[in-house]
Design a protein around this nucleic acid. Structure first.
Lengths: 138, 138
DNA sequence: GTAAATTTGCAACAACGATGCAAGTTTATA
DNA sequence: TATAAACTTGCATCGTTGTTGCAAATTTAC
């Protein structure tokens, strides 16, 4: 796990620092999405709030993680599975939020279906979030 | 417009107050979604910040407006077209965010398609947001 | 018209997130 | 491997967003 994080950071040509390794490991270990608060909790008080924010932004810019839209206003991030090149993600998969455990899970194998838009509308990107009960909670 | 707002408030058995009428009118006039900041701007300094927050919460509870998921952390609301009964909305329509004018529009006629979930996952509700260029900006 | 119920505005507070800057690390170079 | 340059961190500070408690004002119901 440790070496995996390291390898990813190297591949993306980012400086190797404690915070980046630890935070990336957290994402590798978790099968769901994380938000800033989760990371603060799980790293204890190791890193400054600001460092966590900046690390998340950096990872998002570099395509290591992607944002998930929610109706509560909390910024949720999840690991990008495949090689999303910085900025433009190819993560057109559905996200699932469990009503019980409230975990957010990437359904990497479920592709977002395309829809027919009204005249004059040109699609560019789509997001889809399904809520319900997840496999673990059933 | 004024009378329409009034009628809706009456129908939902809410007290008739200035703030509620004005804010509801704003939604009736706008064809897109509004967030708290928009409403503050458009009402000038008429109402207290807190009043606006509480009015939006109330409207959402009573099913007058619904939340729209976004990746930036701003809570966006849009009018419910049909009679969503308090809390449980039947607004399973697609939302569109324009990359140019950055308006958020309800595509009331575009229904969210259902997707096949992995084993053990039970869906309950779905949200879909499409980004691109809207009819006005093309 | 009046009392009860509701709503408003104010003050205060907490969480989230951003920025500037000095001190500390990491990387690249020789 | 020592050193300089480049980058990252933590701190202080600030602004925005959203919430809560409470007294004063408004709306509703009688």
């Amino acid at each position: 796990m440790k070496s995996q994080a390291l390898a990813i950071l190297k591949k993306k040509r980012l400086s190797i620092t404690d915070s980046r390794q630890k935070i990336l490991e957290l994402f590798l270990q978790s099968n769901g999405a994380l938000e800033h608060a989760d990371i603060e909790k799980k790293t204890g008080e190791t890193f400054d709030r600001v460092t966590v924010y900046r690390t998340l932004q950096l990872f998002a810019e570099k395509g290591l993680i992607h944002l998930i839209p929610t109706t509560d206003n909390a910024i949720k991030y999840a690991l990008c599975k495949d090689d999303c090149e910085g900025g433009h993600h190819q993560d057109n998969h559905v996200h699932f939020i469990c009503d019980k455990c409230s975990k957010t899970i990437c359904l990497d194998d479920v592709t977002i279906p395309s829809v027919k838009l009204p005249n004059g509308f040109v699609p560019n990107d789509a997001e889809m979030v399904v809520k319900g009960i997840c496999g673990d909670c059933k």
